[in-house]
């Protein structure tokens, strides 16, 4: 994919070029939103809002990493949604209905062994729950570093923090995650158990 060419065409008004960029980045954008928000519907709303916002702000993009620029818009959209939730704490009936379902499993999950699939879903649920226990800043840094595997520089570009701040937030986030995941010891694969004896 000629990312620079697509960005240039999109800035000139080509909706097809922009949609090509959307298709390229939507999985990463949605996953970041999903980990931050904690539920699939809110994540989808935030992702869609972020792509619309990015489209309107496309002319303000002055080069650099388009992924970092886009993910910054995604995280901001998620923060906005979380703040709206705090102001209006209420859960819709739809959210209650699908709250624990998580995203639709992909086709590959159906050919997994049932035990393996259940274990994977438990682990996903445990990670998601532990991430939700972090502050917004720590959560975002942990997601970008440990799930999206971005470098410290990229993370600093996305969250708009200094490198030192990113390091300290990540250290605290990982310490909290370790403590949290110890509570899901029985759900973790044997090789990943964080028993105190091992430490």
């Amino acid at each position: 994919m000629d990312e620079a060419g697509l960005i240039r065409d999109a800035q000139r008004g080509s909706i097809d070029a922009y949609n090509a960029l959307v298709l390229h980045f939507q999985i990463q954008a949605y996953n970041v939103a999903y980990r931050i928000m904690g539920d699939p519907d809110s994540a989808a709303d935030a992702t869609q809002e972020a792509f619309v916002s990015a489209y309107h702000a496309l002319r303000q993009f002055r080069g650099g990493s388009f992924k970092s620029w886009l993910l910054r818009i995604v995280t901001n959209a998620c923060y906005d949604e979380l703040r709206r939730r705090k102001r209006r704490p209420g859960v819709s009936l739809d959210a209650l209905y699908v709250e624990d379902e998580g995203p639709e499993p992909s086709l590959t999950s159906h050919i997994e062994q049932p035990e393996s699939y259940a274990q994977r879903m438990d682990l996903q649920s445990a990670i998601l729950n532990c991430l939700q226990g972090l502050s917004e800043d720590q959560r975002t840094v942990a997601i970008l570093s440990d799930i999206e595997e971005m470098s410290y520089d990229e993370i600093a570009g996305v969250v708009g923090m200094a490198l030192g701040t990113v390091k300290s937030r990540l250290s605290r986030a990982r310490a909290s995650l370790r403590d949290c995941l110890q509570g899901y010891e029985e759900l973790l694969p044997a090789s990943y158990r964080l028993s105190s004896e091992e430490r």
Partner: peptide, 27 residues
């Protein structure tokens, strides 16, 4: 260091979830 390394490895097991729909914009 080992405990943090295990935590990071666990986090990497959180595989990407598929998108529920395409987020392309309507021309």
């Amino acid at each position: 260091m080992e405990s943090i390394r295990t935590t990071v490895s666990l986090m990497k097991l959180a595989k990407r979830v598929p998108v529920p729909r395409n987020f392309t914009l309507d021309p």
